[in-house]
Design a protein around this nucleic acid. Structure first.
Length: 503
RNA sequence: GCCCCCAUCGUCUAGGGGUUAGGACACGGGCCUUUCAAGCCCGCGGCCGGGGUUCGAAUCCCCGUGGGGGCACCA
């Protein structure tokens, strides 16, 4: 069931690192809700943490999102009616709302130093008590607090969490969550640098930006009750809340650490969108893969395009349980989407990978005839140059010993090569229909297996033991190149046979 | 230590009071075959444990256990 009415949703990352699949999947789901309801998808940069800020992160988010096809309607680069869309550019707003809460008795000024707080926590840890603010500044008379603030004394603003009772908040896929107020800290809303913490900023911005659905990571479940308190203190209507399941490492044991991420990258796998893109994964495959971690459509459908997802996604079918990432499954979807591409489309997408691999002159037109030969054989696009580079190299360098088929001596291999060369030289062209019958006849005549003869020609002509289909490959290479490479193979085998005889 | 969330094959999941518990990836075998793939067929493999409710529980409830998240002037 699509959410009713146009939804306003957002992806609100903190610019502290690269876009990864956790964030990208949240962005995807938000995007889907916006598109399927005819609403808006907003990109908001939550850059209030100046210590962890990384200047290149924002661009990485935008590049990654655009690559995935998740274009936003409002954001820092394109503006919109509820901007600005970077929290540091909205800084003036937050103090005003924090002070409103102070005036209404929902928050208070706190003058405790970080040192005092650290000491407090240390004591609590030693006594095995939950680390929480002790309320030291909670009862400072408002006039006195105000005086100290005006005198320039460093301070923060804390939420005055009720001491009694409990709060119940509602998550769409988890239902009601009730937490005792005594278990909720007096969280800091406004830091001493005047910038808001996440808790204040997210609530103020989501309200001001008219956000209707908040789909965010499950790591926010812990402070969800605080957010509920804030909405109620402000007297604002709450959005629909959905906390998305977390991703676990492939073993299913534990969350993915920085260290794990580095190990993945060594194995040509990654949780970073920029890496997946560089490795040659298709955005279609990445979206399909991410969508199905924590969501399903029915008991059998797994192949989804972005348009399919827009049509079929539903919040109700989200799963609350954590999901282990499965890179093998990503490869599976990659294969599916690579094969689903029009050859011309695949050819175009392959071009940059050939350029990067050292074939700067290759064009999509050059690639077009080759695509049918490799479309079922590649997983990531960066495998294509390795598999089909021999089409574009002026010459190949087969290993002489690889020219010798299993079960034959170098001398026998030489004879096979000479006979095959003679057959090819006698032919008017190297079209597959032209070359295959006489070469099969040769196999017959020599009393060998097809794999022995064709294997030799394959290595001779492609320089590789594993290659796209032989006859079609020769056709694309052309008669001159094929004959030249076969002659080279004969020469190589002559040398090898001589060495063998001498030994 | 405290709080919160979660729990179906190794993994992602469908189902949800009475099903031979379905699909996908992976894995094993076979077919096809000039290599490698792709494709097709077959197979392996699961309801965390214990109590309750019920004629009947994988499904509902409780308790364990396990996993995850949080307990910052980080998000």
């Amino acid at each position: 069931m699509p959410a009713d009415g146009p939804a306003r949703v957002r992806f609100a990352p903190s610019p502290t690192g690269w876009l990864h699949i956790g964030g990208a999947r949240a962005a995807l789901y938000n995007f889907l809700v916006a598109r399927q309801t005819g609403g808006q998808f907003i990109l908001r940069i939550e850059d209030t943490d100046r210590k962890r800020f990384q200047p290149q992160a924002e661009q990485d988010f935008m590049d990654g999102l655009r690559w995935l096809g998740l274009e936003w309607d409002e954001g820092p680069d394109k503006g919109g009616p509820y901007g600005p869309y970077r929290q540091t550019e909205r800084a003036h707003l937050y103090r005003q709302y924090a002070e409103q809460l102070v005036e209404q008795g929902h928050a208070y000024y706190c003058f405790c130093s970080p040192e005092r707080l650290a000491k407090l926590r240390e004591e609590q840890r030693r006594k095995k008590l939950p680390p929480r603010y002790d309320g030291h500044c909670r009862h400072i008379p408002p006039e006195e607090a105000k005086r100290r603030v005006e005198a320039g004394e460093p301070h923060v603003i804390r939420f005055k969490t009720p001491r009694e009772g409990s709060i119940t908040v509602h998550d769409l896929i988890r239902g009601d969550i009730t937490v005792a107020n005594k278990d909720i800290d007096d969280y800091i809303l406004l830091k001493s640098d005047g910038l808001p913490t996440y808790h204040l900023a997210v609530v103020v911005d989501d309200h001001l930006m008219r956000i209707t659905h908040v789909l965010r990571g499950a790591e926010w479940l812990g402070t969800f009750p605080l957010h509920g308190h804030l909405y109620r203190a402000f007297g604002w209507p709450e959005p629909v809340w959905v906390h998305l399941s977390t991703f676990l490492k492939p073993s299913g044991k534990g969350k993915i650490s920085k260290r794990d991420a580095d190990v993945f990258r060594k194995g040509h796998k990654s949780v970073l969108i920029r890496d997946l893109r560089a490795f040659g994964y298709l955005p279609e495959a990445v979206n399909n893969w991410m969508a199905l971690m924590g969501w399903s459509y029915d008991d059998r459908t797994e192949f989804f395009t972005l348009d399919d997802l827009i049509a079929k996604f539903s919040l109700e079918r989200l799963k609350p349980s954590p999901a282990a990432v499965n890179f093998k499954k990503l490869d599976h979807f990659q294969g599916l989407h690579v094969r689903a591409l029009e050859p011309g489309d695949l050819a175009r997408r392959l071009v940059p990978f050939f350029h990067r691999a050292g074939y700067p002159q290759v064009t999509a037109a050059d690639l077009l005839p080759i695509v049918p030969l490799i479309q079922t054989r590649i997983t990531t696009l960066d495998e294509a140059p390795q598999m089909a580079g021999f089409f574009f190299r002026p010459q190949v360098s087969p290993k002489p010993e690889e020219l010798v088929p299993k079960g034959l001596t170098p001398a026998q291999a030489l004879e096979v090569a000479r006979r095959a060369l003679a057959v090819l030289e006698a032919l008017p062209d190297v079209r597959a229909e032209t070359t295959e019958p006489p070469l099969r006849a040769l196999v017959e005549e020599l009393g060998l297996h097809a794999r022995q003869v064709f294997g030799l020609i394959r290595v001779a002509v492609t320089g590789q033991r594993v290659s796209p289909p032989l006859f079609e490959s020769m056709e694309i290479l052309g008669r001159e190149t094929v004959l030249q490479r076969m002659r080279q193979a004969v020469t190589l085998l002559e040398t090898l046979a001589q060495q063998e005889a001498a030994a």
